[in-house]
Simulated scan of single mutants.
Amino acid sequence: MKLRSPFLFITAFLLIVVSATLCFKSDDSDFISAREIIVMRNIGHKILLSSGDSSSRVLPVNKTGDNQYHIRFESSFQFTPDSIVKIIRQGVERSQLPSDYIVNVVECQKNQVVYGFAVLKTEKTDVVACKGRKQPEGCYSIKITFRRSTLNTLSKDYYVGAGGGLTALLLIFAGLRINSRQKRTSGRPLKSLSGTSRFISIGSYKFYKDNHYLEYGNERIELSDKESKVLYILAGKQNTLIERAELQKVWEDEGIIVGRSLDMFISKLRKKLENDPSVRLLNVHGKGYKIEVNEGLTG
């Protein structure tokens, strides 16, 4: 049965475009984190150069919280607060990072803050102390904490709104009673796809690693590339504890360590596996994760 109204067709098309655009943007947080880590490494590189060190390494940068980065160095060095302030200011401004941030220089052995300053552009005030006082050579690391703008929260509300728009789109299609052939064409039938690749059983789920999706009954649950890689490691050793270090190898090729990335992906996978009560994705505190499958509950 064809669409009866050009207006409904245009509305449906626009909703598809908006929903597709938001889907592509849903993983922007990982891209932003990776970009910011590169900026942090460049800041560390320039700090070493300013101290006369052009050969030792900036160690992998840790993202220790939603808004904090930890820059570590291979060798000891000395610094003047003036150069630290200037280098970080330039790096933040040129990279269009949040304009409000606090910097602490931490002495490694005693884990004490030996120097710090704050730049608070939104409050039109900076707190920069002890400029011009050269610090002795030692093992230091730098922690930079950003204050995120409220614009970041708007994207979440917008995403929820788009979900409502997608629901409206589904209601339009249901109301127009599009025939089963049109539904199968737009929905890419699961049976034909399922037969093209091997899957791993996880309770009542079928996991297609190469095609990046889970199949639960007639429902298809899409997975990102990294979600598939993490789930592949867990699903290969069901009912067995997998250490965090083994799961974090998924990020090794990128040369960065993002502290909460693994926890975020585990949380996403746990939601996508919640339909089957026989399957639980468990966190063993301080050790790792495991997929626990209770065969007696499998339907």
Rank of each mutant, 00 (worst) to 15 (best):
M1H: 08
L3R: 07
P6W: 14
P6T: 09
I10A: 12
I10F: 14
I10E: 07
D28S: 15
F31I: 08
F31R: 10
S33D: 13
A34T: 11
E36H: 12
V39T: 12
R41Q: 12
N42P: 00
H45D: 08
H45L: 06
L48D: 00
L49W: 13
S51K: 09
G52C: 08
S56V: 04
V58M: 12
L59M: 11
P60T: 05
K63A: 05
T64W: 10
D66M: 08
H70N: 09
H70W: 14
R72S: 05
S75M: 10
S75D: 12
F77G: 00
Q78M: 09
F79S: 03
D82C: 03
I84C: 02
I88K: 02
Q90W: 07
E93R: 11
S95W: 02
Q96K: 14
Q96N: 13
P98A: 11
N104P: 00
E107T: 01
N111M: 11
V113Y: 04
Y115C: 01
Y115R: 02
A118S: 13
T125W: 08
V127D: 11
V128W: 06
C130E: 14
Q135S: 09
G138C: 04
S141C: 06
S141V: 01
K143R: 15
K143D: 08
I144G: 00
R148L: 12
T150F: 15
Y158C: 09
G163C: 11
G163S: 07
T167N: 02
A168Y: 07
F173P: 00
A174R: 10
R177L: 09
R177G: 01
I178Y: 07
S186D: 06
P189R: 11
S192H: 03
L193V: 07
S194P: 00
F199T: 01
S201V: 07
I202T: 07
S204H: 04
K206N: 03
K209Q: 13
H212Q: 14
E215N: 11
E219N: 06
S224M: 04
L234E: 07
G236S: 15
N239Q: 03
L241N: 02
E243H: 13
E246W: 10
L247V: 09
K249D: 12
G255C: 06
G255T: 04
V258Q: 14
D263G: 13
D263K: 14
M264L: 12
I266V: 05
K268N: 14
R270K: 15
D276P: 00
S278E: 10
S278F: 10
R280K: 15
L281V: 03
L282C: 06
G286N: 06
G288P: 01
Y289D: 04
G296H: 11
G299L: 13
